[in-house]
Design a protein around this nucleic acid. Sequence first.
RNA 1: GGCCCCUUCGUCUAGUGGUUAGGACUCAGGACUUUCAUUCCUGCAACAGGGGUUCGAAUCCCCUAGGGGUCACCA
Length: 479
Amino acid sequence: MTEQVRVRFAPSPTGHLHIGNARTAIMNWIFARHSNGVFVLRVEDTDMERSSEVSEKSILQDLRWLGLDWDEGPEVGGEYGPYRQSERLDLYKKYTEQLLKSGHAYHCYCTPEELEAEKKQALAAGAPVMYSGRCRTLTQEQKQRFEAEGRKPVVRMKYPEQPLSFTDLVKGELSFPPESNGDFVIVRADGVPTYNFAVVIDDGLMRISHVVRGNDHVSNTPRQLAVYHALGWNLPAFAHIPMILGPDRTRLSKRHGATSVDMYAQQGYLPEALINFLSLLGWSSESGDEILSVQRLIEEFDFSRVSKSPAIFDVEKLNWMNGVYIRETDPARLAELCLPYLKKAGYKLPEQPVLEKIVAAVAKSMERLEDVIARAELFFTDDIQPENEEAARFLNKETTQKVFWSFLRQLDRIEVLNADTFRKIMKTVGQETGVIGKDLWMPVRIALTGQAHGPELPAVVEIFGKQRCYRLIKSRIIE
RNA sequence: GGCCCCUUCGUCUAGUGGUUAGGACUCAGGACUUUCAUUCCUGCAACAGGGGUUCGAAUCCCCUAGGGGUCACCA
């Protein structure tokens, strides 16, 4: 029987959920759901300086917003906990001692200053930059002398002298010669383990079957292999997914604009759209389809279709895709989603049915939910004025006044004004005045909305109602 | 600089020895329409370069160039 698939997403709580990390989380989650496996969330907070509870909270919130639920981890528990590295220190200690005893690791007393000097020298000489390993052979006396000086040692792993290799699910066979790494620190002077050590202990103990992570971790992998081997543990499968780059082909960062999930959420990107878009950065459906539901992503996901090369984050395409999702959203939910933005704009909100109509009227031209503020403004202001010269010109056409007069006459004869009756009115106005096309519609549009471009007039008019339309047209009549 | 990896339209990608190199976004043009938007149609646009292997290479091998990653008591 095949072993249960267990994957993990292991963010460090040092800020918001980054777009790149979000994509990693998404692929892990999708793969877990695809395989009927377990999705573990583990908080890598061994960097005491930079980690914070606030960050952890926000990352958890962003994951939930995306719809990525975890089966084990903070706030849900699980049998392989605890799920914060800061709460697993005794575990790391146990295995550190084991490695020390077995001779795979040793104490190193070099000071940061000494290391820095060594590094500078190597750099100047054009030699490879790595630790010399000189503390490997310290005698008892030397160690005691360092201790007496008050030096706190770190623990270093002896990097093996054989090539280290593994098979990556997306990149294939990968091999690293011994000279590609030196002895690396696994426990800091303060006793806290470093990433490359803790990650192995945790993945091993948590029975992680597939390590799915960003390509920036490829070069870390041989160091981790060394730990696995020293411990005599079985290797998980590795899958290194391509990185996400900015338009300038460098690592996606603040310079490129919004880089965290919460910023996209704020601007009004839908979680489904973000999931869909991010999934397609480095993966493609065999069908060639691009608009893919979460359900389909789960069904179709496969590492064999993950690309090896980095992908550039293209906001234009995200915008398009988000627009597709907005247009597919039913009016009730869309109204609900737009509500926070309308409130923020300070608009006086109407009844739910009217709100839904407003949102539906402008939805076609929206790429982000925040667009609703500008698009729907005309429904929330009483002061309708031509927005520019182009608009004002239609008001001054010689045929305009008779169109308005006719329009008001027709309006008087109607009970309720809705999209249908409005169309009928316009038809009659056209016949009565002999004015057609733009000259007929534009003056009405400008008088009612102030804008030469905007949502379909019948929809606008239905939302406005008879009173408001009457008033607005009347106000444009020159006696 | 050492080590590892990558390279198809501007961008995301399909493609696993024989295709008019396909799709999507963007852009341009057109149709629809009272405007914008939506929708639909059409078009522009790519195998980094050079050597091999082969009857035949985007597909296999080598070299060059370009790009990315990493070399922390960050993760």
